[in-house]
């Protein structure tokens, strides 16, 4: 997994509330058995009309926000389905960080596994960042310091320490967990004595 320490980039403003993972990537595009190539279908209903024509002026296409690595989003971003295709699609579009007032739990967890940092900031801070993004200002996100800086504004954010380490070091979580193999075996031996019906 790619490490995340800090980034400095313009941002795409998309502050709609309750954006669900069906909006991020519709189910009809989940049939691939690979992890890549989902970006072209991301936010399809925002980018294309019913006939498949690109909607002029949508924030995800065109020159205005080209190269943005930060997405400024609305409250409860990523609600709905657990599909990891949603962060795969967002990563495929080039984003490394999403800033919103809140995120849905499963989506936020899926982002970490894919090197995407989700930053929760109060609504007024997000509103200010939307304006800054629309003005083409560069936004700086520093995970080590847990701070977002934009012009003179500075917003500190909370972040889970385990996930911070995972992101900053780009760790392979399965590899990490397998170092606890003995503890897992001990747990199983104990559980099998107490609830043997769970083992076949």
């Amino acid at each position: 997994m790619e490490k995340f320490t800090k980034i400095s980039s313009i941002a795409t403003p998309f502050p709609r509330v309750n954006v669900d993972t069906d909006i991020i990537i519709p189910a009809k595009h989940l049939k691939s058995i690979k992890r890549t190539g989902f970006g072209q279908f991301a936010f399809e209903s925002v980018r294309f009309d019913a006939d498949g024509n690109r909607i002029e002026g949508n924030v995800f296409d065109g020159e205005r926000y080209k190269g943005a690595q930060i997405l400024i989003a609305g409250d409860n971003f990523g609600c709905g389905s657990s599909r990891e295709h949603a962060p795969w699609a967002i990563a495929d579009m080039g984003y490394r960080c999403i800033i919103a007032p809140t995120f849905a739990d499963i989506f936020a967890g899926n982002c970490v596994k894919n090197g995407i940092l989700t930053v929760e900031l109060p609504q007024d801070a997000v509103d200010a960042l939307v304006l800054a993004a629309e003005g083409g200002q560069v936004i700086n996100v520093d995970l080590e310091e847990q701070v977002v800086v934009c012009g003179n504004a500075r917003y500190e954010f909370d972040y889970n320490s385990e996930q911070k380490e995972m992101l900053m070091q780009g760790l392979d979580e399965i590899g990490q967990t397998l170092t606890a193999k003995a503890a897992i075996s001990n747990f199983e031996a104990r559980q099998q004595r107490m609830t043997p019906w769970l083992y076949r």
């Binding site: 599909r83 962060p87 967890g109 596994k113 399965i174």
Partner: peptide
């Protein structure tokens, strides 16, 4: 998510 599916399968 799928990364967690893999994590559960392996561990």
């Amino acid at each position: 998510g799928t990364s967690e599916v893999e994590h559960v399968l392996a561990t």
